[in-house]
């Protein structure tokens, strides 16, 4: 009995050691960890801590998904930048409208856009940006990425501790890459109540397809007033009026 207890303790300790070697840090007692307002999504990550030190891969296949992913990434980068951080946004055919970033809690003048023409240059630039530890986050938009290239980026991140958000826009094949997790963000139809007309707040189906040492999952989130909210099926107008009699 006693040996079994010791064994499980040992296993737990080894597990946390492995995690720390992989770049995760267990939450220290009394230290509040940033959860970026992701709420229930945090359970998917090992130890419930958002892996800041790692590459996050986002995949989108249609313009609608690309827009949703850009919005989600902007919101996430905004949380990382806080008040005075700076972010670099690299891409080849950039269509992100800087003006709109302010809706996701990012001051657009704190974002430096880098538009490159060649994939080779782009990869190099992303790596250089990730090396710069004065940045809060690096957003890269790239079409194709292979395992070697992504591994290189991941190693850079582990050295500099700058979070990398890599957006693979309409990749030809979704080959595995060395990222801590793979996200897929798709737009969801807005709230279906009839009280308020119009399209409302952005709503997304946030899916984590892969996560290192964690449990993948899928959530329905709404971005409202600068924070992520889990969508609960609200009482519709008809039900409401019916209930009220």
């Amino acid at each position: 009995m006693e040996t079994a207890l010791k064994k499980s303790e040992l296993v737990a300790r080894l597990r946390s050691d492995i995690l720390s070697l992989q770049g995760f840090r267990a939450p220290a007692l009394g230290v509040k960890h940033d959860d970026f307002g992701l709420g229930p999504v945090m359970k998917t990550f090992p130890e419930g801590v958002f892996p800041r030190v790692g590459m996050h891969e986002f995949v989108s296949n249609s313009p609608e998904q690309t827009a949703a992913t850009s919005g989600f990434m902007a919101a996430l980068a905004g949380k990382m930048m806080k008040e005075d951080g700076l972010c670099v946004w690299l891409g080849r055919h950039r269509t992100v409208y800087p003006f709109a970033l302010s809706q996701f809690g990012v001051s657009p003048d704190r974002v430096i856009f880098v538009d490159l023409k060649k994939d080779k240059d782009l990869l190099w630039a992303i790596e250089e940006a990730l090396k710069c530890d004065a940045l809060s986050a690096v957003v890269g938009e790239i079409k194709e990425l292979n395992l070697t290239e992504s591994r290189r980026l991941q190693l850079t991140v582990e050295e500099s501790r700058v979070t990398g958000l890599l957006h693979r826009v309409a990749p030809r094949l979704s080959n595995p890459v060395a990222a801590v997790c793979r996200w897929r963000i798709s737009p969801l139809p807005g709230a279906s109540d009839l009280v308020l007309p119009g399209i409302g707040f952005p709503r997304w189906q946030v899916t984590i397809e892969k996560v290192r040492s964690g449990e993948p999952g899928s959530w329905r989130l709404e971005f409202r007033d600068g924070s992520f909210e889990l969508i609960t099926e609200s009482v519709s107008f008809h039900q409401y009026t019916a209930k009220a009699g």
Binding site: S70, G71, T95, V96, Y97, F99, A100, L101, S102, Q103
Partner: peptide
């Protein structure tokens, strides 16, 4: 922030 603008233009 009062003007609703698309994130991809």
């Amino acid at each position: 922030t009062d003007q609703h603008r698309p994130v991809q233009l």
